[in-house]
Design a protein around this nucleic acid. Structure first.
Length: 938
DNA sequence: TGCGTCACG
DNA sequence: GACGTACGTGACGCAC
């Protein structure tokens, strides 16, 4: 039904519901595992009451529940203090936010939120759309901030008092009609939300003034006419603040939304899905009430607490049998599946393509799964086996035309009320984005596993299936072959493809069913929902944007390197007196230590001499005793540097320039690094040289297109700042607050050297110690790094611990925590498991240092993830985009006149990224640069 | 495929 | 008392 005259939209203020439910009910926890669910129970009750209200003339034809997305909105850009001193939600409420959204979907009601906007803005926008379309709208809320909307077909209803709020009611509260509520609020301000207003003027006075002068602008223009001196001055002095206040309190009626009114049509809940949710929450009375109303038998709720998550009772699922999967070959069959998906409210999705490179891959088919064992595959791009010289060939018959199938699936994949489930969703998201489809909302089983099992094992589907479902999936090699004779998926026969592809969707769905309750039990729902899942579209957009790389610059550098290398090779062979492969460590070792008889040759476990940079650097100091060997070692070091730069960078990067975009598109691995860091692959753009002058020039090839600039922002000393906070070191915190040179301060403290007598060498030693602390310092490691005797290094460490005793306490406490729990945590709750922490032997050292480092490195990783997730909304409207992340640095490309505002906004987001979840006791500082290329910007 | 090496934070 | 060690990554070439 198209929304129009006679339609009635109900908009429920979900966030207000949650807080009301939370405060109205005693703290209630789920019996089996103690998960706090009181607010969810209250929310379900209110929502169910709302949905079961008897018809009548105000019965909704369309309905949605609207939530706040986060505490940071566009209003913070206008006025940073806005809602800033809002208290943190209580600890036992936080995990319930996501559950209420799940509840909303379980009731089959559209669940809306928008990054950068308040729920009130979405409500204002949809209400306006509803009346513009000739329909009516009822807002279910008692929030006074929404009262400005009342009138012209928009009503409010207080859900608690069950009372209508009409124009008269608003006028009673504010002393003015709804259209002038904004004017009154601008003057009176709001101490709870930190809206400044004019000091000394409350609602009563404000209404009086507005009624006298007509509206706010007239009032401000004629402020000097006010008789009372205090009021007059308050208005004249604070005219700007009042205008800012107006911007803050005025609800945005044109919030960008990805749904239309038609998407919000009332749908009956799917009894099975709703019951599954309610029984999973262990809500006895609501389950019974809902079951009665739906005329079904209420399922039993088991309350036996599981001994461990692994022993939790699992619902019976049929065995995985690829023989039962369906091939969807015509629109009728596809439509039937779409209907089933809509009824289920969720679907596991997997795309099959011709390549693992999302920017080059062509879509071949899509598999779908609604419940365990119920899976299907839609072949779209399968081709005849042979093909001509150019690899092109005809499509196999019996496939729905791709555009037609995608047009039918797009509304489902983008429907806010249908949850899409994937394994490594960033891949499928990018493939479908290239066909104009933006998947939302979604869950990702890989990221769920990462949040729960980080540090325990990998999170690829094959491993997860075998480990958690005891099922080994069909190997892709059995279809594609391997090596030179490997084929692409479009050449796989459709019958085989159905089995393989649909099985993947089936497995994904089963993993999701299993992981969903586990996520709550492991207390990592917030990590998953705030640090993992929202990163997917952000990274996908960055990867698709790519970074422009200038081929000519790289090519010229490659040629120059080749010439220098050839000259070095000649010299090396002359010095060696033999022809050998300089690139072979084995041959080089034999030349140095056997043929030339240099001392210090040590063979490793493979029987080869070690020839690493450290070994060669030692040899270069033997100019007196072994002049030939010393010079040979020096030349090899030079050659190695050039060889690295050429093979890994100037040559390889050229091969990664995309033929159509002319840009390099890396791929970030979200669930790769144990600590929460991202990893960059194909190519790795997180290790582009910078430490040597020659290497740094490679960054000149990373350029901005004409008229644009590269902008780089990076956190200054973020890990040391986090260490100072976590370990609570007053001296370090003080130094950061006052903006001192932290390494110099450390040196001064440790070596009793006044700051004005600091030498670079003493500072360098202190810097090495500071880094060593982050890495889980050892006397041996520090000695090797500083090239000093081990006893001396140990003396430094002892002294450091003496001066900063909190560091030692942090280390000991962290190890003890890891031994007791089997994991350590970041400030944001990310868990990093430490399975080897109780190991005996040399492995124990690694595990201990890893446990010390992980909370620090991981917290820094969490901070920049939070910044990245907020960044798109923060820079919306600027001609600028985020391109790369390098652990503590974000790289952007921007139009020249957008550079300044970009730096201002991005810096604010990055420096404030820990808020509001964590209040760091040290400031985070971000440095910024810009230029025509990365070398200039950094 | 494993190892050594070396690029980055 | 000896073991072996700074933390976290990915890509390349060689040797098997």
């Amino acid at each position: 039904m198209t929304f129009g005259k006679g339609c009635h939209l109900h908009l429920i203020d979900g966030s207000a519901y949650i807080f009301r439910a939370y405060h109205a009910l005693p703290p209630l926890t789920r019996k089996s595992d103690g998960l706090p669910v009181g607010a969810v129970a209250g929310f379900c009750n209110i929502l169910w009451n709302e949905l079961s209200r008897n018809g009548g003339k105000d019965a909704p034809t369309h309905i949605a529940v609207v939530f706040d997305y986060s505490s940071k909105t566009f209003r913070n850009e206008i006025y940073p203090a806005y809602k800033a001193q809002r208290p943190e939600p209580p600890e036992d409420l936080r995990p319930q936010f996501s559950l209420t959204r799940e509840a909303t979907r379980a009731f089959n009601v559209a669940c809306l939120e928008a990054d950068g906007f308040e729920a009130d803005d979405i409500i204002a926008t949809l209400a306006q759309q509803a009346v513009d379309a000739g329909g009516a709208c009822t807002i279910i809320s008692s929030d006074k901030d929404l009262m400005q909307l009342v009138g012209n077909g928009i009503l409010m209803r207080d859900p608690m008092k069950d009372r209508l709020i009409d124009r008269a009611e608003v006028e009673e509260k504010f002393g003015v009609p709804p259209e002038k509520v904004v004017d009154v609020q601008s003057l009176s301000g709001d101490s709870v939300d930190n809206v400044p207003g004019a000091p000394g003027i409350g609602i009563k006075t404000a209404a009086l003034l507005i009624n006298e002068y007509g509206d706010l602008d007239s009032l401000l223009a004629r402020a000097d006419e006010i008789k009372q001196p205090k009021r007059r001055e308050a208005l004249i002095q604070n005219a700007d603040l009042i205008r800012i206040s107006r911007q803050l309190v005025t609800l945005k009626r044109d919030t960008p939304l990805d749904v239309t009114l038609d998407d919000l049509e009332v749908r009956a809940p799917d009894p099975e899905r709703l019951m599954a949710f309610l029984t999973d929450m262990e809500f006895r009375s609501i389950t019974r009430r809902v079951a009665e109303k739906l005329k079904i038998a209420p399922p039993a709720i088991t309350e036996t607490p599981p001994a461990t998550p692994e022993d939790a009772p699992r619902p019976e699922a049929p065995p995985i049998d690829p023989g039962t999967y369906e091939a969807i070959r015509d629109m009728a069959a596809l439509q039937a599946w779409i209907d089933r998906i809509r009824a289920a409210g969720h679907v596991a999705v997997d795309t099959e393509t011709t390549s693992l490179d999302e920017m080059r891959a062509e879509l071949v088919g899509i598999s779908l799964c609604i419940e365990a064992g119920q899976a299907a595959y839609v072949p779209l791009g399968h081709r005849q086996g042979g093909g001509d010289l150019f690899g092109s060939s005809d499509l196999v018959a019996g496939q729905i035309p791709m555009e037609e199938a995608l047009a039918a699936l797009k509304p489902v994949l983008e429907d806010p009320a249908i949850l899409k489930i994937g394994q490594n969703m960033k891949y499928d998201w990018k493939i479908l984005a290239r066909h104009g489809i933006r998947i939302a909302p979604f869950d990702d089983t890989m990221l769920m596993s990462y949040a729960m099992h980080g540090g325990l094992h990998g999170h690829g589907m094959d491993f997860l299936s075998e480990n958690y479902l005891s099922h080994i999936p069909i190997p892709i090699k059995s279809l594609l072959g391997s090596g030179k004779s490997a084929i692409t998926f479009d050449r796989v026969g459709i019958e085989d493809a159905v089995k393989y592809a649909a099985e993947d969707a089936d497995i994904t769905l089963r993993l999701w069913e299993r992981f969903r309750p586990d996520l709550h039990r492991a207390r990592v729902t917030t990590v998953y929902e705030t640090l993992e899942r929202p990163l997917v579209p952000v990274l996908a957009e960055m990867e698709m944007a790519g970074v422009k790389v200038d081929r000519d610059t790289l090519s010229r550098m490659s040629n120059a390197f080749a010439q220098k290398m050839a000259a070095l090779e000649d010299e090396i062979r002359t010095l060696a007196g033999a022809d050998f492969n300089v690139g072979s460590p084995k041959q080089l070792g034999e030349i140095l230590f056997d043929r030339l008889g240099l001392p210090g040759g040590e063979k490793g476990k493979t029987g080869a001499y070690a020839t690493g940079a450290e070994v060669l650097e030692d040899l270069t100091t033997m100019e007196d005793s072994h002049p030939t060997g010393a010079r040979l070692a020096a030349r090899v070091l030079d050659w190695r540097q050039l060889s690295k730069l050429k093979s890994t960078y100037t040559d390889a990067l050229q091969d990664h320039i995309h033929p159509e975009t002319g840009r390099v598109h890396t791929s970030y691995v979200i669930a790769g690094a144990n600590t929460g860091r991202l990893a960059s692959t194909d190519p790795n753009l997180q290790n582009i040289p910078v430490r040597t002058e020659e290497g740094r020039r490679i960054r000149e090839a990373f350029v901005a297109p004409a008229g644009r600039r590269i902008v780089s922002l990076d956190y200054s000393q973020i890990e040391l700042r986090i260490l100072a906070h976590i370990a609570d070191i007053p001296a370090l915190k003080q130094a950061f607050k006052e903006g001192h040179d932290i390494h110099a301060m450390t040196a001064s403290e440790m070596f009793n050297v006044p700051l004005d007598q600091m030498t670079p060498d003493i500072r360098r030693q202190a810097k090495a110690i500071n880094f060593g602390v982050i890495y889980g310092i050892s006397g041996f490691g520090l000695a090797r790094n500083l090239r000093i005797p081990r006893a001396e290094a140990q003396g430094f460490i002892d002294r450091y611990f003496e001066r900063f005793p909190g560091i030692k306490t942090y280390m000991d406490d962290t190890i003890a925590f890891a031994k007791a729990h089997g994991f350590v945590q970041t400030l944001f709750g990310r868990k990093i498991h430490t399975p080897d922490i109780n190991a005996k032997g040399p492995g124990a050292g690694f595990a201990r240092r890893g446990a010390i480092n992980a909370p620090i490195q991981g917290t820094a990783a969490d901070v920049i993830r939070r910044a990245m997730i907020r960044m798109p909304a923060a820079i919306a409207g600027l001609d600028a985009r985020m391109l790369l992340q390098v652990h503590d640095e974000l790289l952007f490309e921007a139009a020249e006149d957008a550079v300044e505002p970009l730096i201002a906004r991005a810096r604010e987001v990055m420096e404030g990224a820990a808020h509001p979840a964590v209040h760091l006791s040290v400031p985070l500082i971000v440095d910024a640069g810009q230029g025509a290329n990365w070398a200039e910007a950094h």
